[in-house]
Nucleic acid binder design. Sequence first.
DNA 1: CTGAAAGCGCTAACAA
DNA 2: TTGTTAGCGCTTTCAG
Lengths: 333, 333
Amino acid sequence: MEKHTITIYDVAREADVSMATVSRVVNGNPNVKPTTRKKVLEVIERLDYRPNAVARGLASKRTTTVGVIIPNVTNIYFSSLARGIDDVATMYKYNIILENSDGNSRKEISVLNTLLAKQVDGIIYMGNSISSELRSQFAHSKTPIVLAGSIDDQEEFGSVHIDYAAAIEEAVADLLNHGNQRIAFISGPLKEPINGKYRLAGYKKILAKNGIEFDPELIFETDYSYHAGEMLWPAIVSAKATAAVVGDDELAAGVLNGAQDAGVKVPQDFEIVTSNNSKITEIVRPKLSSITQPLYDIGAVSMRYLTKLMNKEEIAEKTVELPYGFIKRSSTK
Amino acid sequence: MEKHTITIYDVAREADVSMATVSRVVNGNPNVKPTTRKKVLEVIERLDYRPNAVARGLASKRTTTVGVIIPNVTNIYFSSLARGIDDVATMYKYNIILENSDGNSRKEISVLNTLLAKQVDGIIYMGNSISSELRSQFAHSKTPIVLAGSIDDQEEFGSVHIDYAAAIEEAVADLLNHGNQRIAFISGPLKEPINGKYRLAGYKKILAKNGIEFDPELIFETDYSYHAGEMLWPAIVSAKATAAVVGDDELAAGVLNGAQDAGVKVPQDFEIVTSNNSKITEIVRPKLSSITQPLYDIGAVSMRYLTKLMNKEEIAEKTVELPYGFIKRSSTK
DNA sequence: CTGAAAGCGCTAACAA
DNA sequence: TTGTTAGCGCTTTCAG
C-alpha cells in the first residue's frame, strides 16, 4: 500500500463536506458554520493535511513569494537590507527567493526572467545601476517592483533610500570644519548614479558653498572591496588629501588600514568618514565616524511598500526617503 | 480587448502542433523533428511565451527550488556559505528560498513547514543545534536535506563541514608551542555540539597530550556577537589566560579589541586565534591568525550534494569533510 | 452556509 | 515523431 500525499479531497471525504468547504476553512473564510469548521479542522489535524502551495498558486494566481535581486549576500550592506526585507516578508506571509546578481546586468536580466517564470508576486531590486535593458524588462512586466537602498535616477520605480547627496554634504561639512581643504571623495563606480550623480553632487555642492574649488584629482573611483581601499593609499598621498569621505564601509576600512599600515595617524594626520554605519565601523580601530542609515529599516520599509503595491493600494509618493544621521567616532577630529 | 497571459496552448495553436510537442521543445526533449522544433521556437519567440513554473511544478511534482534555512544572513560566516549554495544552485537550475531562523528552534520548525508547503525539492540547513522536534520533522518528510557548515552529533543527515576538533587541536598546539599554559576557550553556546562536543574535545585532547590539566575556568561560553567578545576581557584577565582560541570571528574581533582597548599588546601580552577566516580577520589590527575553512566551498559542496540526493543518486559517505588549514597572521607570535 | 464544477498551465503516459 | 487525454491540488464563480 503506497501512502499518497493527502489532499484537500481526502479531507473533504473524511469530513463529509465538499472541497470548497475545506478550502474555506483553510483560508479562514468566515462563511463556514462553526460546527462544520470544527469538524474539518479535526480531520485536518488527524490526517496531518498540509495545503500544497504550488497548487494554490496555480489556482489563485498568487504565489505569496517575492523575488529579491541582490548584488551579493556576502556584502554586509546588502545583507542588512535583506534581513529587513525577509522579516517583514515573513510578517506578511511572503517568502523570499534570493538571487545574487553581482551587479552584473546580464545576470540581473536572467535572474529577473527566472523570477518572473516562478510567478513571484513582486520583486525587490538592490543594485546601483539599472541598465536600460533591465529597465525595459521591468517596465514590461506587470509585476510590482521596488528598489531597496538603491536609487533610480529616472525615478521610474518605487524606491526607498536616504538622501545620499545631503548626507555626504553633512559629512564633508564636518571635515571642512576641522580645517581640511583637500578632501578625497572615494567611491564605487561613478557610472552608478548613487556615486556619480548623488554623492558626488553633494560633495561638490558643499565645497562650492565653502568657496573651495573642485579638484578632479581628489576623486577616487574604485570597486567596493576592502582590498581596493587598502591599495589606494599611495594615490591618496600623491593627491595631497588630508581627509576622505568614503562611499562604502569595507572600502573605508581598507583606506583606514592602508593609511595606518603606512604609518599615518588617524585622525591626527588624516581623517576618514564613511557612509553606511555597518558593524565594520565599530570593529576597526580607530572606529569609523559614519553617516548613519537605517539599513534594516530600509529593507523593511521596501518590503512593506511592496506589499501595498501587490495589494494594488495607492501609494502617495513613489520615493520614500528615510532619515539619515551622522555619528562621530574616532576617525575624525 | 483584455490581453491574457499566453500559454502553451496558444503556442500550440499558432504553431499548429499539439501542446505536448510544445512542451517537448520547451523541455529540450530530443524526440522532435528539427523542422517542427524550429517552427515552435519561432512562435515562442514571436509570442514571447514564458513557461509558467508554478504550473510546471504542479504537473511534474518538481519545483526546482530548494529551501535554505539560515540563522542570520547578516552573519558573514553564514552568508559566505549561502553564496556558495546559491551559485551552484543556479548552476543546476535551482532557485533558493531563503529563511532566517535566528537559530531559534521554534522559528526553524515554522520555516520548515512553509518550505515544505511550497514543495521545495530539497533543503539546506545551517544551524548549530538540531532540536529533537526539528529532527523528527526532518525525518518524517520525504524531502532530502543536507547540513551546511553545521554538524549533527547523531549523524542522521548528510552534512558537509570540516573536522572542528582537529582544527582546534592544531590551533591550540600552536599557542602551546609559544609557551602559553593557560589558554582560554571562547565559543558560542556549549549546548551546540559544534562547540560543546567537537571543538571542546579538540581543546581538551591537545591539552592532555601536553600534560596540561584542564581548567573549567578557562572556558567562556557566550553568544556570537562582536559585543560579547568585547565585554569578555575582564573575565579573561581574572582567569589569568595568556591566549585564547575563539570559535567565531566576530567574537574574536571583540576579544581582540577588548584587550587592546584595555591596553594590552597583542600578540606580545596576549595571543588570539580564531576559527573561520572570514574577511574580518584581515580587517582588524593586528590581523587575526585563524583556522581556515573553505566557506564558499562548503556551501557549494552542500548544494551539489543535495542535487545528488534530489536525483536519488547513491552517496557513498553521509558526511563530507572538507580540508581545513591554519593561517598565521599577527595575533599570534 | 454549502456544494458542484470549471478551470489554473503544464507534464506524462499512452496511443497512433 | 506527434497527438490525446488525464490529471497535479487547489480556488473560485455560480447555484442553491
